[in-house]
């Protein structure tokens, strides 16, 4: 009996000395980390929709912010969602495809200009596209003078612009992964008569599916988060905006008026991304960290 008590108190002492402060730090940082999310959730369900009276646990809870958001015909939330999905999915597919094919040839083939290509990609990577936003705007504007479907306000040029940024973003990381796939596997396939396309689609791609998922998701999230180029190319017209741009236009300078419906929209847009991220955190985190090591 006394023996157990002794053990317990020793355990407690250890806990106090070694672990208590860690928990205190952890709780403080957790509050900081969750702070905006918690208030976003609480505001979304607060039927008064007021920023100035908002409480952590709202007095009057309900879904009126959501219904307000959905019924606002000048701020078509679902059209924004659709625009975001069209742009982000097609651009992320394009980016993954371009990154994968480029990385395959850079990892598996030796050719003249290979080093030059790799160095160019590395240098280009340092200068993100958004530095040249003004030029992109003027270029897409002149596209539009010749082909109206490729001009400002259209999604296709925006998707192609993100496609143009693909090599600088994903190639090094994918090449690093392809390099770890033993080349004996494709040698063997080659002896069996497989061509380069078969090797790529039947051997490399299946082995790299997890990496593709990571690249696709990181591209997808990155594009959803892009504000500058997206707003400049698509413009600030109600129907052409994405969720990010639309919600910004919705709330900016009107916190008093639109806080409730805005947080409702923000919450709806956050949930899928947050869920995806936390479920796949192991892969995504390693992707984030290793992606930047290469750069």
């Amino acid at each position: 009996m006394s023996n157990i008590g002794f053990l317990q108190s020793k355990k407690m002492k250890f806990w106090f000395k070694k672990l208590l402060w860690r928990h205190l730090v952890g709780i403080a940082v957790a509050i900081f980390a969750l702070f905006p999310l918690v208030w976003m959730i609480s505001a979304a369900f607060d039927v008064t929709g007021q920023i100035s009276t908002q409480q952590l646990i709202p007095m009057h809870r309900g879904l009126s912010n959501f219904t307000d958001l959905f019924s606002n015909s000048e701020k078509p939330f679902f059209i924004w969602v659709r625009n975001s999905m069209v742009v982000a999915i097609s651009a992320a597919v394009l980016q993954t495809l371009i990154g994968a094919t480029a990385a395959y040839s850079l990892s598996r083939h030796r050719f003249k200009g290979r080093k030059l290509t790799l160095t160019t990609i590395l240098i280009v990577q340092m200068f993100p596209q958004l530095l040249a936003t003004t030029s992109l705007f003027l270029i897409i504007n002149s596209f539009g003078l010749t082909f109206s479907g490729l001009g400002l306000g259209h999604q296709l040029p925006l998707i192609l612009i993100f496609g143009g940024g693909a090599l600088g973003v994903n190639t090094w990381m994918l090449k690093g992964f392809f390099d770890t796939i033993p080349s004996e596997i494709d040698e063997a396939a080659k002896i069996d008569g497989a061509g380069h396309f078969v090797i790529f689609t039947k051997i490399i791609v299946p082995l790299a599916i997890p990496v593709f998922i990571v690249i696709f998701l990181l591209s997808f999230i990155g594009i959803l988060n892009e504000y500058l180029i997206t707003s400049v190319i698509l413009g600030l017209d109600g129907k052409s905006m994405t969720v990010a741009v639309g919600l910004q236009q919705f709330i900016y300078g009107q916190y008093g008026k639109n806080w409730g419906p805005f947080t409702a929209g923000a919450l709806l847009a956050t949930i899928p991304v947050l869920t995806l991220f936390l479920f796949l955190q192991k892969y995504l985190v390693s992707g984030l960290v290793s992606g930047s090591t290469k750069g």
Partner: peptide, 16 residues
């Protein structure tokens, strides 16, 4: 919990 800020689209979290 600590990686939650990475998982919220930053455009939205900054506006919040």
């Amino acid at each position: 919990i600590f990686i939650v800020p990475l998982a919220i689209p930053s455009v939205l979290s900054v506006l919040v």
